[in-house]
Write a protein that binds this DNA or RNA. Structure first.
Lengths: 226, 226
DNA sequence: TCCATAATTCGGTTGACGCCGAACCATAGC
DNA sequence: GCTATGGTTCGGCGTCAACCGAATTATGGA
């Protein structure tokens, strides 16, 4: 009633089913057009437009005009993190959707979280990088070591180009399915890009699930073990 | 529309202003009665009762019957963490309440977050414990070292009694004002208990602000420096 | 036993918001 | 220029949920 940020305002933004569906869809990390989001949410284009306006005002999504298309994406990693956090709560409260098909285990194994890898494999990546001394964590801050930089450069990631200062290089993000952290931030995103680029894995259409090829998964595991 | 936890359900629970006020009040960590929460939210007892029922169904609050009073508290640390996360977003989106009085700096300096210390001092505690080797962090898991256990025992905390397995001993919690982590979990709660017990600080009535005495703050700082 | 206080349940009102269709603006391509 | 398509704005409809007062059920104390 008195102090602190106005939490109800943005929670109610997320609290509408149509908007929540849109945000969930955007958790895939891709920018989507208004009509795609409308179909994702199951509402008409007019309704979707209204919702997207509100999400924009609330600072939850960003717009990117491109010709006559308007591409929407999450406003930033903090938004994605909050959404994951909410998913964790919902999961815990047993409020999973009825439609929990056989795809669910795959979702737990590997999925895309905004713009980086999550699920079992994402957590594994993060933890082995810590254990092998490529990353260090202190005070909630995650940083690359010299060793880690070397290894990523060898993996084909151009770190100098990444470190624009606009976005934190490394960040830990709590995983709703595994309940441990995985690697987010610019480096997390770059790794996911590279994994796709090498053909090790790709996203399943219209889903957050990441499918590794047999060979890709083996190579990924090798990369972890180094 | 299809997969994952039902995020809209619980977000809409938090999204109602009256309920959000109640939850914010419970972030103080104390259990409050239904009437106290009603006045906190500015609604009638009847309305509050309805809200509390919903919050209970949604798994966000726990009830504790004591005589003819029913004490409500947050269902767990995950709930508190999610709320802080939402506050961070709201803060970032500039959606702070109009009523940002002079009390705000005090809130940033030291406050109680559910059942442990937050704000500048909370973050400082966490970071010096990491830096001095009392804590280690790995894969999002925070653990006490032998050194850390010694120091806490010397501080007057009975760790054996704390480690019931029911609750994680250490956990990092993202701070919405400082945007870095502070120490939560059973140990975080115990430290806050002990700080109060030693008379170093106490909560301001009906607020999350923690007021350190001059002497108490000095002693706290000494404790950090060891 | 009886009264005061905490809390929930019920009925009815009201306002807010999500929804759509249709009309309207903008861009791209011919 | 014209036309197709993406997107927003407007008006009106319907529903849902928050709200309160009053009645009802517990509990504790005199």
């Amino acid at each position: 009633m008195k102090d602190g940020p106005d939490i109800a305002r943005i929670a109610s933004l997320i609290g509408d089913p149509a908007r929540a569906n849109m945000l969930s869809a955007l958790m895939g990390g891709q920018a989507l057009t208004a009509t795609e989001l409308a179909s994702e949410a199951g509402v008409s284009a007019a309704t979707a437009s209204g919702h997207l306006g509100k999400l924009g005002d609330g600072g939850l999504v960003r717009v990117n005009q491109q010709g006559r298309h308007r591409y929407f994406s999450l406003a930033g990693p903090e938004v994605a993190q909050t959404l994951e956090s909410l998913m964790g709560l919902a999961q815990h409260a047993g409020a999973v959707r009825v439609r929990t098909g056989p795809r669910d285990p795959a979702l737990r194994r590997a999925r895309v979280c905004y713009d980086h890898l999550a699920g079992d494999l994402g957590v594994q990546l993060y933890e082995t990088m810590l254990a092998s001394g490529g990353l260090t964590e202190s005070g909630g801050e995650v940083t690359l070591t010299a060793l880690g930089r070397d290894r990523l450069t060898g993996f084909g990631i151009d770190l100098d180009n990444l470190d624009t200062g606009r976005r934190k290089l490394c960040r830990s993000c709590l995983d709703w399915s595994v309940r441990r952290s995985h690697l987010a931030g610019a480096v997390g995103a770059a790794i996911w890009q590279q994994v796709q680029h090498k053909g090790w894995a790709k996203r399943i259409e219209n889903s957050r699930i990441v499918a590794f090829s047999a060979r890709g998964e083996a190579e990924f595991m090798d990369f972890l073990r180094v």
